[in-house]
Design a protein around this nucleic acid. Structure first.
Length: 179
DNA sequence: CACCTGATTGCCT
DNA sequence: GGCAATCAGGTGA
C-alpha cells in the first residue's frame, strides 16, 4: 500500500486518485472514497487557476505533488485540490465528489443534512471539515490525508468535460466512477 | 426531471 | 466592477 503516483500526465494522476480515500480526524475520523475528480493543467490550460502563473492565492498549485490547494468558490464554499505533476508546473486535481465511508454522523452534522453529503466539491470539503487553513498542507503527512484504496474497474470510469468552466471546455478531464 | 435564482467573497481585468 | 472549478431551494412540466 503506497500513495498513488501523481507525476506524469495530469489526467493519469487524476484517474489514479479515484478509489483512494481522503481522511480527516478533526474531533472524529471522517473519510470518503474519491469517486469524481477533475484534472487541471498549468500554463497550458486556460481553465486552470494556474494558467496565468503563480499568485498568492494559487501558490499551493505550484508546490510539490501531494500539496493541498484549497480555494474559496463563489465566496461561500471551500474546494479541495491536490497538486500533481512536477513542482512548479501548477497542475492539480480537483476532488469533486466521493462517498462517505467513515464518520457518517460527524459528516451529517457538518453538512446539516443526511443526503447528498459529498457529491460536489464544496460539499466534499465541508463533509471532511477542510477549509482554507489547510491550504498548503501535505496529503502525505498533514491533517488531511490521502490513503490508497482499491482502484476502480476501468470499465466503470467515465471521462466527461469539466463542470462549471467556460474555457477549454473541449477537454474530457472530468473522471467519474459510475456503475 | 429540467431550469432558475439568491447567497457571498476574493481575485483579476 | 465583473465574474467565478457552487449549493440549495424553488418552480413548473
Amino acid at each position: 500500500m503506497t500513495a498513488p503516483d501523481l507525476s506524469g500526465p495530469i489526467e493519469e494522476a487524476a484517474k489514479r486518485l479515484l478509489g483512494c480515500r481522503l481522511v480527516t480526524d478533526f474531533g472524529a475520523r471522517t473519510a470518503v472514497v474519491i469517486e469524481e475528480v477533475e484534472a487541471y493543467g498549468g500554463a497550458d490550460d486556460p481553465a486552470s487557476h494556474a494558467y496565468r502563473g503563480p499568485t498568492v492565492r494559487n501558490a499551493s498549485m505550484f508546490r510539490p505533488a501531494g500539496t493541498l490547494y484549497v480555494y474559496r468558490s463563489y465566496g461561500i464554499h471551500w474546494c479541495a485540490n491536490i497538486a500533481a505533476g512536477a513542482e512548479g508546473e501548477g497542475k492539480a486535481v480537483l476532488i469533486r465528489g466521493g462517498r462517505v465511508v467513515e464518520g457518517r454522523e460527524t459528516v451529517e452534522r457538518r453538512r446539516g443534512r443526511t443526503d447528498h453529503l459529498a457529491d460536489g466539491p464544496g460539499k466534499l470539503a465541508q463533509a471532511l471539515g477542510i477549509t482554507g487553513e489547510h491550504d498548503g498542507a501535505s496529503v502525505m503527512s498533514g491533517p488531511v490525508r490521502l490513503e490508497p484504496g482499491p482502484p476502480p474497474d476501468p470499465a466503470s470510469v467515465h471521462a466527461t468535460p469539466r463542470i462549471g468552466i467556460s474555457r477549454a471546455t473541449d477537454r474530457p478531464w472530468r473522471f467519474v466512477i459510475r456503475r
